[in-house]
Amino acid sequence: MRNRNAAPKPEVVLAQQLVFLVVLLATWQFASGRLIPAFYISSPSDIVAIVWKWLADGSIWLHVGSTIITLFMGYAVGALLGIGFGLLLGLSPRTERLVAPFIAALYGLPKVALLPLFVIFFGIGLVSKVALVASVVIFLLFYATLAGVRDIDRDIIQSMRLMGARSDEITRKVRLPAILPWIYTGLRTSIGYALTTTVVSEALSSNRGLGFLIEYSASQFNSAGVFGAVVVLLVLSSVIMIPLGMLERRSRPTRPSR
């Protein structure tokens, strides 16, 4: 008979996870150079060696630092602009309806395609990358903020007015609490997109950053370098994303949003 409370024991699960990891790495190590040329898949030991070398000579920090700076600057600029436009258009619904199709059309454009344009405008370097990241984040925060403004319950505002609340009190007690969770969700979901865009912009046109390191290693046919940079990226992304994912799980399940 089924027993609902019968989740597998944590120790057993942990052991199985370790076994899986060890088997995976061992298979990889064995296959490398024997079944598949090391040129394609490198090997765990080579990857560890190259990451260790990067850490030892400190060369990795230039790339990690560049990625982090690009990520957060683009994220901050995009979020501020997105929230600003969201509030602005949210509070003037007539204008919002007028321009909605234009915004939707721009939103449908894969933003990476703007990178060559930004590079021509701003040159290769931090500014063009930040502009690209911001161009992705801005739309996400714009739509999140707009949804938040629409989520404000007019009946509550009415009844607050009847109770004699002043406009600023209504803003503080009704409007902000309605909008903030939406903005918060927008901030949380857009960080992943921001990181992806950062790495892509580095790979496409830059001379530093983890994305560049991956692209550069690949162009030298240095598969250990590619995997090593991916491993560093994986560590960085999980440091940024996993705490957010844990917060996110509380607010699930998400409905498919329109």
Binding site: T196, V199, A203, G211, I214, S217, A218, F227, L233, S237
Partner: peptide
């Protein structure tokens, strides 16, 4: 949590 498109250079390789 990994930006999958970061693997593009590898795939091209």
């Amino acid at each position: 949590s990994l930006p999958i498109v970061a693997l593009t250079p590898l795939l091209i390789m």
